[in-house]
Amino acid sequence: MELLNFVLEAGFWVATIRMATPLIFGTLGELLCERAGVLNLGIEGIMAAGSMAGWTWVYMGGDLWTGVCFAAFIGGLIGLLHALLTVQLGLSQHVTGLGITMLASALSSFVFRMLLPKATTPPKIIPFKAFAIPYLSDLPHVGNVLFNQSALTYLAFALVVVVAYVLFRTPVGLAVRMTGENPMAVEAQGLSVFAIRTWAVVAGSALMAVGGAFLTMSAFDAFYIGMVNGRGWICIALVVFASWKPGKALLGCVLFAAFDAIQMRVQQQSGMAVPYQFYLMMPYVFSIMALIIMSRRAAYPRALLVPFRKGER
């Protein structure tokens, strides 16, 4: 009963939407890569790199929005490396992705330590503030929840619509989806599978990096080593949960964040009855359960993980 009251509170939904934001960016980014037929296990590292790049940019005196652009640029650059190795050369997407994650996380920590060698308490920046959209934020119930958020959160929601529109209503999106299903057919149409996959991975990785940047530039105001903390892997599970559809991805991220907010609340309420570590396990357990539930019906893009070589069958 108490929990029901809590779930009906506006504060709960405000927190949920905030916690869902980095997942929305990450899930959309991964979705884009996988729709084109490339699994991007670099996501965990790319998010770390994005969080580092965006934060450093602002810390060095840049403003917030160029910081977001810089994070996206770095993410895109790492994505380009992933695409060169897995698309152009057709290397194992599993191993390459893990290598990219290791490289990107290690580089972020390295650069952070080199720039701020003596930092004991992580230095802070002034992050994005909640921006109330005039009139809309005055709406009863939903106003405060949906229209009094950080600007990056609005961007995440807008991107869901943009990605869905591009993927399902434009020729470009058709080409991307076809590349993930049947690259031979794409080649027969005179389009370049290499180019489509490369750009999809670059764009997807840029989105992941912005998700990482949200952590340091909006959710928190400092960079910690290891702060992505498995969110990237959770996004990969969410993509399967969403059956590669942006709308369902949004739903999955919000649901996931809601569960996460509930477990935090229960954790505070229950005192020490159940150790807090078990609550912290919940997000990972949820992700595995989501995978189990959805995997039977999962319709993977047919050409996912299959490298394309011209003239080879």
Binding site: L41, H94, N229, G230, W233, I234, I236, A237, V240, P275, Q277, F278, L280, M281, Y284, V285, S287, I288, L291, I292, S295, R296, A298
Partner: peptide, 27 residues
């Protein structure tokens, strides 16, 4: 049995096990 991709599940289990160890050594 269920065609669940093992990459993500093994990765996520790492976090779960580490939290379990965290509980053991703090508890």
């Amino acid at each position: 049995r269920l065609q669940v991709d093992e990459v993500v599940t093994t990765l996520l289990l790492n976090f779960i096990v580490l939290l379990f160890v965290n509980w053991l050594v703090f508890g």
